[in-house]
């Protein structure tokens, strides 16, 4: 396996993989309209491509039932001329998102009414990493990859393990994960993702100026980041989700063998099968690690 640190990247060429939150339930409840959001993002994608002819943009739609590649600037089909009102980039992307949504709707299971399901961030992160790995193998001098998560829906604690795995694999292949979180609170997953992979986490306070945030903060390539003073994240929420109930916890039990996290005492680790001794009142207290 070619390893990232020894990789020689094509100079000044970026491979930007954008994951786009298309969770319909989130957008239906969010005050900022999706149409507005999408048009600002489209403008941003266009400007990335305009920054350098060799720059490459991939867009992955993050639905709540599935994920899909909706745009790849390197494919032939997307190099068409302007079709009437807008460039091929826009029309193709919009068309694909529409198709994706139709497919995603069919997969929709019956859910509890009144709750917003989380988007499948773990899936789109994995797809992004897969694409980047393919790019590593295809070309002798691949463009410098990075991932940008445009996320709105709240974290799904049930995806904790999958997301952490994706984060660590990104860290290992030196792919920074930038995150632009537009939801109402902060996303602990994305904060950790950006912190661990040394990407940027930013939560734009002024959503109608989203394009400007994107172009000033997230459009910068990895090389120029060393010269820029980009916004620092105020704090990272390092709390973990327990493996048993997928709850975000402050304190929990950690398996001494495989480091799985649980919110309550178990006789046996559900991940690695280690049998824990009888919990003494004191011993369980000692075993209880603070994770925050």
């Amino acid at each position: 396996m070619p390893s990232a640190p020894s990789k020689i990247y094509a100079d000044d060429v970026s491979l930007l993989v954008v994951t786009l939150d298309t969770n319909p339930f989130f957008w239906a409840t969010f005050p900022f309209p999706f149409a507005e959001f999408l048009s600002q993002v489209l403008a941003f994608l266009n400007s990335i491509l305009l920054l350098g002819q060799l720059n490459q943009v991939i867009v992955i739609a993050t639905g709540c039932n599935s994920c899909a590649y909706v745009y790849d600037s390197s494919s032939e089909r997307n190099h068409g001329a302007t079709t009437g009102t807008m460039p091929a980039l826009y029309s193709n992307l919009l068309h694909n998102i529409n198709e994706f949504l139709a497919r995603d709707r069919q997969l929709d299971a019956i859910r509890k009414p009144g709750t917003v399901p989380s988007s499948l961030l773990s899936g789109s992160l994995s797809m992004a990493l897969c694409y980047i790995q393919r790019a590593f193998r295809l070309e002798p001098m691949p463009p410098q990859p990075r991932i940008l998560c445009l996320q709105g829906a709240a974290d799904g604690p049930e995806q904790y393990v999958a997301i952490m795995n994706a984060i660590f694999s990104a860290q290992r292949s030196m792919v920074p994960i930038d995150s632009c979180y537009i939801g109402s609170n902060n996303s602990a997953f994305l904060q950790q993702a950006s912190y661990i992979t040394s990407g940027i986490y930013y939560k734009p306070p002024q959503l109608d100026g989203l394009y400007q945030y994107l172009s000033t903060v997230f459009a910068t390539d990895l090389h120029s980041r060393t010269f820029l003073r980009l916004p620092k994240s105020v704090g990272v929420d390092f709390r973990a989700s327990c493996f048993c109930h997928k709850r975000t916890i402050d304190m929990g039990f950690v398996c001494s063998v495989c480091l799985s996290i649980f919110c309550e005492h178990h006789d046996k680790c559900s991940t690695c099968g280690s049998v824990f001794g009888q919990a003494q009142p004191d011993a369980s207290a000692a075993n209880r690690k603070r994770k925050a």
């Binding site: 339930f25 239906a28 309209p33 149409a35 949504l101 995603d104 709750t115």
Partner: peptide
């Protein structure tokens, strides 16, 4: 920590509104 957002819309309506937004841009 995180207040749960509530969504009264059914999946049909939610997907519908998202797709209408896309066609609006188109």
């Amino acid at each position: 920590g995180m207040e749960q957002m509530t969504c009264s819309l059914g999946s049909e309506e939610a997907y519908g509104s998202l797709m209408s937004a896309i066609s609006k841009i188109q």
